[in-house]
Design a protein around this nucleic acid. Structure first.
Length: 726
RNA sequence: GGGCGAUUAGCUCAGUUGGUAGAGCAGUUCGUUUACACCGAAAAGGUCGGGGGUUCAAGUCCCUCAUCGCCCACCA
């Protein structure tokens, strides 16, 4: 008898040992698996790329849920005989990592990044990344993830960097990447631009001022920007102001004395709002900038990149911080009798940088953008509805990929959200003023510019900026497969089968991957997108570090085991729904792992020497038991094929406990004493094997550990065994 | 302001094409200590958020209201 079964199942003792065994087998690598004869060479491929966690981060519940789902899919498909590849990787998380290292250097060496210089600072970051990457990797392994580590990718490694450069240059040559002066989101704390999607909005109550501007009344919550307001805008059809003509000039008393204001008639002014008149600050407002562009108006910068007022505001205000200036300006305007009314409780949204939480200041800057509306020719298309050589825009490609069904988003309701986002997409600002990231492969000399990786020669200077981290992330399905070089891998594994990720990054990532990949290859990056929800605590609140309500997945694993933790996450994982996680549940599933353990113990102690190759004659009752088993396998299979992991898990759970253990095994106790002994032995053993296989993708460790104790088995490892056929 | 989701047993959730409700956990009672006390059995628990409609029949379809949550949107 196997002594280990005399004690309750101990995940602590088992899991790392089993994982090591798996890794040493090398069979997470599909080529090795083919070599060893577990996978058919011509088998259909099944690929998932792991959404790369932050290389310097630690595993959180969101990761745990993602890993549980993806490993479930991968193990299931591997057992189905597919040529299965799951690619691991980590993300450099440029801004986040840079600021962590910057703080560290500041604390330890009392220096900032400029003191060190770009090159030295980047070395510090590289060292830091190297030191900390093993933490996240070992935590990913602790979940039981059957990733092909031989293909480990890091967003900043050589292969990925060359993919980024290649993509940039191709897009530049196609005229999709252009440089221009536009209104961008400036993060004064991070000292960089950020894209529209990286801006969050927070409700804030502030004062709202009604100011006299010549004969008009204008409203503003930001008087500090009003120095530059030389244009007064009203709707062309507004009867109240029909005496004024477009372009008419009038002199008005303003903050620092008289200025000349120009009347602009534009539909952007809403007659229903306030007085129907507004002044504009093109440099510090994207909408105002659009109006200024449309009418070819002048604009100037009022606030600098640190949030202080520039000399143009006059000696009195120069150098003041926004908050202070606001008060002072209002005092001054009040003394001049130009303040009509102050609304104390004005609720509006302020823009916040999602990383730094700093208030975003729109600025006009020269940056690199991806033009999503420019027509380009797609030489070769595998996208439904787009022909080879057709002229399309990136927007059209992104719509076609989903509309034509080449990319299927689960759950379906996210299609609408996706289309809405794509249709309203503005040029994507991709340049960042931070050091850690992929440096833009653009070179300048005497007003000339060249897009290439190496310096074109003496006197050429490379663009100092780096690329938005989502630019490289957008290439992830391609770059992890070695694009543009490894043609063989790309042919076999691309497009990938499923992209499994949180619905919170559908725009950041999912959409960007579709954009990049369709342009660069004429293929979609993945056939299906499975969106999981946010992991929530027992009260339904979003888990986050700042709220302190997070459950550390590592604590869960060490207390209840990875199997139980995975199972709890999977039973709640209905597509798109948030995943509630209650520790009580995890405890319950730990009991379940022990139940499996004891079922195995019972079966193994009573079936010594059973020979599976000779199928005995069954009674009607036996046949019914096997039919029930088949029905369970069928249902689990179907649920897995339709991404209903919650139902699949539930079904398998219930079968093992309440059918196999409670009914079949209980019934067998008498039979094992009588003349039906060998028949029943065969049945028990067969059911055990089938159940182990069925449960393996959900609970890989305990099932594999039991498998290792079987005397008769079709393969040395359960994870490469064949999925049961009903 | 626009859009989307949720509302079912004390708690967390299932309920796929409409046929008068299910699971886990918690709780109650009893039993079992030779697979498993990380056990078994039984009972209990819901006018399926409110209201209206379609239908022989609605948790399931339609309308409406309410509450909660999420996403998008720079009315200055």
């Amino acid at each position: 008898m196997h002594e280990k079964f005399e004690k309750p199942y101990d995940p602590q003792e088992t899991e790392s040992r089993i994982y090591q065994m798996w890794e040493e087998s090398g069979l997470f690598n599909p080529e090795k698996s083919i070599e060893a004869g577990y996978t058919d060479e011509n088998a259909e491929s099944y690929t998932i790329v792991l959404p790369p966690p932050n290389v310097t981060g630690v595993l959180h519940m969101g990761h745990a849920s993602m890993l549980a789902i993806e490993d479930l899919l991968i193990r299931y498909q591997r057992m189905q005989g597919k040529r299965t590849l799951w690619i691991p990787g980590t993300d450099s998380a440029s801004i986040a990592t840079q600021s962590v290292v910057e703080k560290k250097v500041q604390k330890e060496e009392k220096k900032n990044r400029h003191d060190l210089g770009r090159e030295v600072f980047l070395e510090r970051i590289a060292d830091f990344v190297e030191d900390s990457k093993n933490t996240i990797i070992s935590q990913v392994k602790a979940m039981g993830s059957s990733l092909d580590w031989s293909r480990y990718a890091f967003t900043m490694d050589e292969t990925r960097t060359s993919a980024v450069n290649e993509a940039f240059i191709r897009m530049y040559n196609a005229g999709l990447i252009t440089r221009g002066h536009r209104s961008v989101n400036w993060d004064p704390k991070g000292q960089t631009t950020i894209s529209d999607d990286e801006v969050e909005y927070k409700e804030e109550t502030t004062k709202f001022y009604y100011l006299k501007y010549g004969p008009f009344t204008i409203g503003t919550a930001r008087p500090e920007t009003k120095f530059g307001d030389k244009y007064v805008v009203m709707h062309p059809d507004d009867e109240r102001y029909k005496e004024y003509e477009h372009g008419q000039q009038l002199e008005v008393e303003w903050i620092n004395g008289k200025i000349t204001a120009t009347i602009i008639k534009d539909e952007a002014a809403n007659p229903e709002f306030g007085s129907g008149v507004m002044t504009i600050t093109p440099w510090h407002s994207a909408i105002d900038f659009d109006i200024a562009k449309k009418h070819d108006l002048e604009y100037e910068q009022i606030i600098d990149f640190y949030g202080k007022l520039l000399p143009v505001t006059g000696e009195e205000f120069e150098g003041m911080k926004i908050g202070e200036a606001r008060e002072k300006i209002i005092e001054k305007l009040e003394s001049k009798g130009l303040v009509e009314k102050i609304d104390e409780n004005y609720v509006h949204n302020i823009a916040i940088g999602d990383r730094t939480k700093a208030t975003i200041e729109p600025q006009v800057m020269e940056q690199w953008f991806i033009d999503v509306n420019k027509k380009i020719t797609l030489p070769e298309s595998h996208i439904t509805g787009i022909k080879d050589g057709q002229e399309v825009t990136l927007k059209e490609l992104m719509i076609a990929a989903v509309e034509g069904g080449d990319v299927d988003i689960i759950p379906n309701r996210f299609n609408k959200i996706y289309f809405h986002w794509v249709n309203n997409l503005r040029p994507w600002c991709i340049s960042r003023q931070i050091w850690y990231g992929h440096r833009i492969p653009m070179w300048y000399k005497d007003g000339e510019e060249k897009a290439q990786i190496e310096s074109p020669g003496d006197g050429w200077e490379q663009d100092p900026d780096t690329l938005d981290t989502w630019f490289s992330s957008g290439l992830w399905t391609l770059s992890t497969l070695g694009w543009p070089n490894k043609e063989e891998d790309l042919k076999i594994y691309h497009p990938t089968s499923v992209l499994e990720t949180g619905h919170d990054i559908i725009f950041f990532w999912v959409a960007r991957m579709i954009l990049m990949t369709t342009f660069l290859t004429g293929e979609v990056p993945f056939k299906k997108v499975f969106l999981h929800g946010m992991v929530r605590d027992a009260k339904g609140a979003k888990m986050s570090k700042s709220k302190g309500n997070g459950i550390d997945p590592l604590d869960l694993i060490s207390e209840y085991g990875a199997d139980a933790s995975r199972f709890a996450l999977l039973t709640g994982a209905a597509p798109g729904n948030d995943i509630p996680l209650d520790v009580q549940q995890v405890r319950g599933y730990k009991k379940f792992t022990n139940k499996i353990w004891n079922v195995a113990r019972f079966v193994l102690t009573h079936t010594d020497g059973v020979d599976l190759s000779k199928r005995p004659d069954f009674s009607e009752d036996d046949e019914k038991d096997l039919e029930e088993l088949n029905a369970m396998v069928n249902e689990v299979t179907e649920h897995l094929d339709t991404y209903r992991f919650d139902l699949a898990a539930d079904r398998a759970y219930h079968y093992l406990w309440h059918t196999f253990a409670d009914i079949i095994i209980e019934k067998s106790k008498e039979e094992l004493e009588g003349d039906r002994r060998s028949t029943v032995q065969w049945k028990l053993y067969y059911i055990l094997i089938t159940v182990l296989k069925t449960l393996h993708p959900f609970m890989p460790f305990v099932t594999e550990e039991i498998w290792q104790s079987l005397d008769t088995k079709e393969s040395p490892y359960l994870f490469v065994a064949k999925w049961p056929k009903a």
